[in-house]
């Protein structure tokens, strides 16, 4: 699955992760060129979330490093501006409205936030009517959609998504599939862990990384 490092947007080099007593993985390397989807698979507790957090720069690997366009991601603001991460938690202030949350997210991500792009993002994920409702009043599927809206605010090169389909209904999954396709066709890179099937049109470069329980 390795391509030449020079062309790679996101590359993992010899990553090792230890959780408590257990070594989750070691010597993990891959390189993703633009327009590639990497699916991370494996049973529960095998380190998928840990890997994604390392790739996002939230956690530090025990050994090895992650490179983005050839540079280590640690303390690299350009990477941080180009990467979107969606974890188990959506990251919304519950007492804030949908619009307020998006505005904060845009400011934090560094995306210049014109009102129009916010409205458009809300419309894309089907929350246009809910702009002024507090997140606490949304269903969990709607909250996930709001998190998806954050991904498409300002074009980002790297998506790192941990179980993005959780809580989404059928229409929401189709919506996500469309967003992901556009992202990949727009030469973005995505690393996704999911237990569900992602249906993507032919011609999109896909790789699968299966993590196994290590001894």
């Amino acid at each position: 699955m390795t391509t030449t490092n020079e062309a790679a947007t996101l590359a993992a080099i010899d990553l090792a992760c230890v959780r408590g007593d257990r070594s989750l993985f070691q010597g993990l390397s891959f390189a993703l060129v633009r327009g590639t989807l990497l699916k991370v698979e494996g049973p529960n507790g095998v380190g998928k979330t840990s890997l994604l957090r390392i790739l996002a720069g939230l956690a530090r690997p025990e050994e090895g490093e992650v490179r983005w366009n050839g540079k280590a991601i640690g303390g690299c603001p350009d990477f941080a501006a180009d990467r979107r991460y969606l974890g188990h938690h959506n990251g919304h202030g519950l007492a804030l409205t949908v619009r307020e949350n998006l505005r904060v997210a845009a400011a934090l991500q560094g995306t210049p936030c014109a009102g129009a792009s916010l409205e458009q993002a809300m419309e894309t994920v089907g929350l246009a009517h809910a702009g002024d409702s507090p997140v606490a009043r949304l269903s969990s599927g709607q909250r996930r959609r709001l998190a998806l809206a954050r991904l498409i605010l300002g074009a980002a090169g790297v998506w790192i998504l941990d179980e993005p389909l959780n809580a989404l209904d059928r229409a929401g999954q189709v919506l996500f599939g469309g967003l992901l396709r556009d992202h990949l066709l727009g030469r973005g890179v995505a690393v996704i862990s999911t237990h569900q099937t992602l249906t993507l049109p032919a011609g999109i470069r896909q790789q699968t990384l299966t993590l196994a329980v290590s001894s």
Binding site: D78, A80, R83, G87, N90, H92, L94, A105, L108, G110
Partner: peptide, 17 residues
């Protein structure tokens, strides 16, 4: 605490700022 529980704190640390 609330920001830790709802994941907002994660997003704050992920910011390029």
């Amino acid at each position: 605490r609330a920001d830790f529980e709802d994941g907002s704190l994660e997003q704050l640390l992920l910011s390029p700022h």
